[in-house]
């Protein structure tokens, strides 16, 4: 079996607040795993537990079938959500210090830092204090801090937030390279289009539980397909009584319908043609964003009914 990072039935509570509720998932070596969920769903807590910075109340975190101990912990590269660097310490010095804390020799640490500041485009700022850098550059330095010690596992909390498009491309490229080199890469993000494009597998977290997990294709297959119909002569509400569909959105540009499982899309087309000309009829799989909205809102209603 290939190596994988397993988060196994992990629970964590802060006082009366349950942050994680037996969450289970795994990140395989060589894949990019995206963790998505609303604010407060438990993504950050899950990452901190995976990292060993937080201790779980129950459950286990394993790497290569062994519980993670202090030695493995040092082999993890971590980028916290609220960025963490000494503001009044020079970039180069700080990166070398952090790499050495992770167990590198001074020479190896310096060489790795040289390599990463070059790759991430902050080589010119290595003698500046971190606080003098722009937020985007601070984030690049933060990524360098996660990567400099040549980690076996990468855990990144919101690595893309606040980056310009060029920096997003650099970051994406680096994550892909790391995964190709056999590192399991786990990151959280609210930019679902990015997650859909970049991730091999995605997990959706809700109220401390993993509610859906799989490849992007698998997840999109789980959702209802959509029909987009543009029939300019159709009266408002024309689709409301049709069998097998639910109206998602109706506007001048057209009608978006959710297609129920097993429903006949050709019957919908015939119904549309009866209203007049049809300029567009498209069947599409839901995007991750649609799916996410669907899962989160459906479960919320369920939660409220209880």
């Amino acid at each position: 079996m290939e190596r994988q990072l397993e988060i196994d039935r992990v629970s964590k509570r802060y006082g009366d607040v349950v942050a994680l509720h037996g969450i289970t998932f795994e990140v395989r070596a060589g894949e990019i795993f995206g963790l998505v969920g609303s604010n407060g769903a438990g993504k950050t807590t899950a990452m901190r537990v995976a990292l060993g910075v937080l201790e779980a109340d129950a459950g286990a975190v394993r790497w290569d079938r062994r519980p993670i101990g202090p030695e493995t912990r040092r082999r993890i590269g971590y980028m916290p959500e609220e960025r963490g660097l000494y503001p009044r310490m020079r970039v180069g010095e700080q990166l070398v210090y952090l790499a050495r804390l992770h167990g590198m020799t001074p020479a190896a640490a310096r060489a790795a830092v040289d390599r990463w500041v070059e790759r991430l485009g902050v080589a010119g700022r290595r003698d500046d204090d971190v606080i003098k850098l722009s937020l985007g550059n601070q984030q690049r330095v933060q990524l360098a801090a996660a990567l400099a010690h040549d980690p076996e596992i990468l855990v990144l909390d919101e690595p893309f937030s606040g980056l310009d498009p060029v920096a997003v491309d650099v970051m994406s490229g680096v994550l892909r390279d790391q995964a190709d080199a056999g590192v399991p890469v786990m990151f959280s993000s609210h930019q679902l289009d990015l997650v859909q494009r970049l991730c091999d597998r995605v997990g959706i977290v809700r109220q401390g539980r993993m509610v859906a997990v799989g490849t992007v294709d698998e997840l999109r297959d789980q959702g209802q397909d959509e029909l987009i119909v543009r029939a300019p002569a159709a009266p408002p509400g024309w689709a409301a009584q049709l069998p097998g569909v639910t109206v998602v959105e109706e506007s001048g540009a057209g009608t978006r319908l959710a297609l129920h499982d097993g429903a006949d899309d050709q019957a919908i087309l015939r119904a549309a043609l009866e209203t007049g000309p049809v300029h567009e009829f498209t069947r599409a799989r839901p995007s991750l964003t649609d799916l996410f909205r669907h899962i989160v809102s459906a479960k919320d209603e369920e939660g409220e009914r209880k």
Binding site: R74, P80, Y86, L98
Partner: peptide, 8 residues
């Protein structure tokens, strides 16, 4: 920064 430090 303590979060990063305590990872190591």
């Amino acid at each position: 920064v303590v979060e990063i430090l305590l990872g190591a």
